[in-house]
Design a protein around this nucleic acid. Structure first.
Lengths: 213, 213
DNA sequence: GGCATACTGTGAATGTATTCACAGCGTGAT
DNA sequence: ATCACGCTGTGAATACATTCACAGTATGCC
């Protein structure tokens, strides 16, 4: 079963919202309720849930708990997967702090930095290693996802090492496009590009926000 | 002339690359060269340049300097526009440091935080104000773009204030979807969603990276 | 029990983005 | 001066994503 990129993204948003609602005691939900909150159309919600194979009932809608379980099963069929962060500069530290605050099912199991000074230190609860230990630690923990917060001019080099070490997915915060083999998935969070894009559209009578990431 | 979202994003990438090449002395460039670097197809590059109305010549390709000028004129017809950052926590500070390092044409002219302790201080060269001064400063500087790095539970409230104060574009780093009027453009940089998406696609034999933001 | 209601599930229609494929042309080689 | 080459510009084709619109149905009400 192939799930398109856009759908995956929305389903993750649905799950986040559903968890909140579930914690608040809500048992059932209609497509238009979920849609209103996440800024999509009810039809799109129904289509997305159809794509992941979850079925509601007319007159009762979808069961919150069941839907969460279905999403979990679809997106994270295996147990929690560890991720690593490379680049413990200001930005890297900020994200480590951010992740430390969440009981995520994608725990950051290690951090790396070129600066040997940082090796061995704990940063917001996360063990920091020198870059030289990258391959060893990745193999040990069988990590497949990495978070890249190194400066732009180091990003490609680090990405190459990560890919060689078996990484299959990358979140790239550095302001460059990476060359990676096609089986490696890269998600770009390019702050300056986003800012420039917003500056451009801020001038037009923009259509409602839709895009995300 | 309407330029689609995706095209704007790619054009910004082209410009960034072109500036580097221009600085390195390159005078002309072919669509396939630009495409190779940014991970798109040559046809897409040509289509994008057609969309913004730039014309190259067969056998010579596109002029680097001319194309940069055309992109500038298309994306930033007015003089440099100031942006503000709201939320001077760890993440906000990291971005202030990041922006301070760049001679951007979108300078951060002010920062805001709820913590009155921070008011008046300079953070990485940027003046920090209390949230109470938001409306005043925005009006004074006629700022239309804001960078939102507040905690999730404060984001909607701050966004409402920003919109009322005349903001037309937002980069939102908080992990929630914002309700804003349709004329306000929001770009979402949702770190946990990106991470979960990558974790999902890391398992498949992903197609080459394409999406960005 | 029967009926009206308001939802879901989904084929079909529409809209949007990307890619194909080729005519046309300026250039450099001969 | 002519020719062959390899590029651009772009209509047409394809692929992908969203929305429409409605049949089917479980529920709660009378």
């Amino acid at each position: 079963m192939k799930i398109p990129d856009r759908t995956v993204e929305r389903v993750i948003l649905y799950r986040r919202r559903l968890r909140t609602l579930h914690a608040a005691g809500q048992v059932r939900i209609y497509s238009h309720e979920l849609a209103g909150v996440e800024g999509v159309t009810p039809a799109q919600v129904r289509r997305d849930l159809m794509t992941i194979g979850y079925t509601g009932s007319p007159a009762k809608g979808y069961e919150v708990a069941g839907l969460i379980a279905k999403i979990d099963e679809t997106l994270n069929p295996h147990q929690d997967e560890g991720v690593v962060l490379v680049g413990v500069g200001r930005l890297g530290k900020a994200f480590l702090a951010y992740f430390a605050g969440q009981a995520n099912h994608l725990p950051v199991v290690a951090a790396f930095d070129v600066d040997p000074e940082k090796a061995g230190r704990l940063v917001h609860g996360c063990r920091c290693h020198g870059l030289d230990e990258l391959e060893t630690v990745l193999a040990e923990r069988s990590v497949r996802v990495a978070f890249l917060t190194v400066p732009g001019d180091a990003a490609q080099e680090v990405a190459d090492r990560l890919v060689r070490a078996g990484i299959r997915g990358l979140v790239n915060l550095a302001p460059i496009r990476l060359r990676v083999p096609p089986e490696v998935y890269v998600e770009y969070l390019d702050i300056t590009v986003s800012l420039e894009k917003v500056a451009f559209f801020a001038r037009r009578d923009a259509r409602a926000a839709a895009r995300s990431s």
